[in-house]
């Protein structure tokens, strides 16, 4: 059975959930093989976690160049693994950076790249375009398909794998070293999960009225262990940074649960969240378009409903 390569994403020695989702998806296509492309000394801690989700092999491509230069070295490392493994497909998560890595890989190996898939199979993928209005089946016509898959598209299922380590030797070309990472700066984000791959997202809109009221959204999010998002109105007002914007010109999310608080549901906002599995809305205007797509809506004042909901959830969680 041909291998299906999954590019591993991790932070501080922990494999991200989105990677387990891809290892799960890979099983239906072929034999899942994880690829760690990272700074030296990263793979050892990840291997047992990858074994739990069915990785038959773990390709290890470690080099200081990976963290020293932007994007291109990762694609070169992956291309080296593709040459070594002749896989049936390469799957990566749909983060902004990984989409770039996937695109460069496809270019290098002369194949095609499909982005933001919600499902993958042997020859192609299912994508939802125009904010979820149209579902398309796409395929890669030449070469090894490279597919970026949206977070939460698959439920991660454990399955034992051998996780046999395979060393990958590669050298980064001069062109691959054209963009130097001078410095990586972490900005204070607290302990909340990242927006793009969170399984629960709570977003606030203009209805919150003022920057300081955004704490109401954060409290509700924390009661659910959720990531925090916002509409563009809130970003434009300068209440939260642009990285928190959900929508057409912001992040696209597809979580298990999306709670929209004080958001009207403009088409550009919907474009970034309407493929969420379950949508809940709190809005004082019964005519707000967000109710047209909410699975459950409460017409009411967010200043009373949202804090009460946070309290209720905390209470029920015991």
């Amino acid at each position: 059975m041909a291998e299906v390569l999954v590019l591993v994403e991790s932070a501080n020695g922990t494999v991200k959930k989105a990677t387990f989702e891809l290892l799960t998806a890979a099983r239906a296509i072929g034999e899942p093989a994880a690829v760690v492309v990272a700074a030296p000394g990263t793979a050892a801690a990840l291997k047992p976690q990858l074994a739990e989700y069915g990785a038959a092999k773990v390709y290890v491509a470690e080099s200081d160049d990976i963290t020293g230069y932007s994007v291109a070295p990762k694609a070169e490392a992956l291309a080296a693994v593709v040459a070594q493994a002749s896989p049936a497909a390469v799957l990566v998560t749909s983060t902004a950076e990984n989409k770039e890595v996937a695109a460069r890989l496809a270019f290098k190996i002369g194949s095609g790249v499909l982005t933001d898939a919600v499902a993958v199979d042997g020859d192609g993928a299912t994508q939802q375009i125009f904010g979820g209005a149209i579902t398309v089946q796409s395929k890669v016509a030449t070469g090894v398909p490279v597919v970026t898959v949206r977070a939460n598209a698959y439920a991660p299922q454990p399955s034992a794998g051998a996780a046999e380590e395979v060393a990958v030797s590669f050298t980064v070309s001069d062109a691959g070293k054209a963009a130097t990472i001078v410095e990586s700066v972490a900005e204070e984000k607290g302990s909340r999960p990242a927006l793009a791959d969170a399984s629960v997202v709570v977003s606030g809109g203009r209805g919150i009225g003022a920057a300081e009221n955004f704490a109401i959204i954060e409290k509700l999010a924390d009661s659910l262990g959720a990531a925090v998002g916002a509409s563009r109105a809130v970003v434009d007002a300068g209440w939260v940074p642009h990285t928190m914007q959900v929508g057409q010109t912001g992040v696209t999310v597809s979580p298990q649960l999306y709670i929209a608080v004080g958001i009207s549901g403009a088409i550009q906002h919907r474009a970034g969240m309407q493929t969420s599995k379950t949508i809940v809305a709190i809005n004082k205007d019964p005519e707000a378009p967000i109710f047209e797509l909410a699975d459950f809506g409460v017409v009411g004042d967010l200043f009373t409903v949202a804090p009460a909901l946070a309290e209720e959830i905390t209470k029920r969680k015991g």
Binding site: L293, D295, F296, G297, V298, V305, A308, L309, E312
Partner: peptide, 15 residues
């Protein structure tokens, strides 16, 4: 569209 209820003090527990 799913169900929409008006908050009469019980909106939070309904969600």
């Amino acid at each position: 569209a799913g169900q929409t209820v008006k908050d009469e003090g019980d909106g939070a527990s309904a969600i």
